[in-house]
Amino acid sequence: MQLLIQFFKVFIFVGIVTFHNPQVGFAATQIPIPKSYVLVQIHGKYAIQTTKIFNYKKKWICQTEDLPYFEAKKNPLEEIHWTDLKSEIKNQHSENCRDHVLLQDRRTKPFKMVTGCLSSAEIKKTIEEINKLCGRF
């Protein structure tokens, strides 16, 4: 009887684990490596934060140093208004800057690029939106 109870305990435990095991039923698809992407980098005091944004099978994917594959709910690139960013940087005194930002569209030739300071309003807004959409909460 004790053995039977033990058997059921193990059966139930295995059943729960199998049910909850996220691997079950997964076809193992490797995460994609982007060939061309939009690069967003913040050069901080101690480390560089990098986000690569690319399109894969009609989905917008973000790759960060924290999450190698993150499906964004909507296209994060819609948050990058290149013209506004460029005009803001023109009027900015970037020498008084703590964290430097690099935005680079590596899908175009030559690369489209904006560099500036994280503290400037338009750049801060852009980075915050990209972070939100790319899983940096």
């Binding site: 909850h20 691997q23 997964f26 076809a27 995460i31 594959y69 709910k73 899983g135 909460f137």
Partner: peptide, 25 residues
């Protein structure tokens, strides 16, 4: 917690992890 216990480098695992993190947020 379960996802951390059963880590794999597959797209499906990352999809689930991403969904859970978004849901948490």
């Amino acid at each position: 917690k379960l996802l951390l216990a059963y880590e794999t480098n597959t797209m499906e695992w990352h999809q689930q992890m991403g969904t859970m993190l978004q849901l948490l947020k």
